[in-house]
Amino acid sequence: MSDDWVPPAPNPPDDPLVRFEEFVRARTASLWHAAYLLTGDRHHAEDLLQTALERTAVRWDRLDRPEAYVRKVLYTQAVSWWRRRQRRVPEVLVDATPEPPGGAGEPEVRIVLAQALRRLTAKQRAVLVLRFYEDCTEEETARLLGVAPGTVKSQTRHALGRLRQLAPELAGLLGDPDGTPTTGRDEKVATR
């Protein structure tokens, strides 16, 4: 995971409102990506992000590492039982999806992967996002979610297994059944 946000100016302003707004401008995009991957739905992702930022705003004066706190709220709220009861993520089948910025990729794979992600449990999604998007170690993931590292390992294995089951065509992307997918940081993943 990236290091926490640091105020850009050498002498950050004293006004908490100004500092908060600077933080939001700098980190919303990254936080939004995590929220969207966790929920798979724009509206729920907006709600999740807003909840996390609202809690951060309330505690702003007491936070040393605001970004870590926001992410922690994002992930814990995403997997909380109460919030999951409120949310019913629809399985939306689309024929095509807008081309992502940065040029053409593999749209069919992305669509299949996005749909398969929605069918995972909230905890499985959170573990996958933390391990393979945020690039967290098992220990970091366990700390963030408040579970044991062994649980992270088993959840990762279950999640990847479920993805293979839901989308066999992703097998190449997801790697071996023992949980070592092909990523840009294979060696890093394989050794952790």
Partner: peptide, 19 residues
């Protein structure tokens, strides 16, 4: 593309909301 890159691409399909 790796899994990470695909996840990033999925995340970037929706622009972030304005507070």
């Amino acid at each position: 593309m790796s899994l990470r890159e695909h996840l990033r691409a999925i995340a970037e399909t929706e622009p972030p909301p304005a507070l």
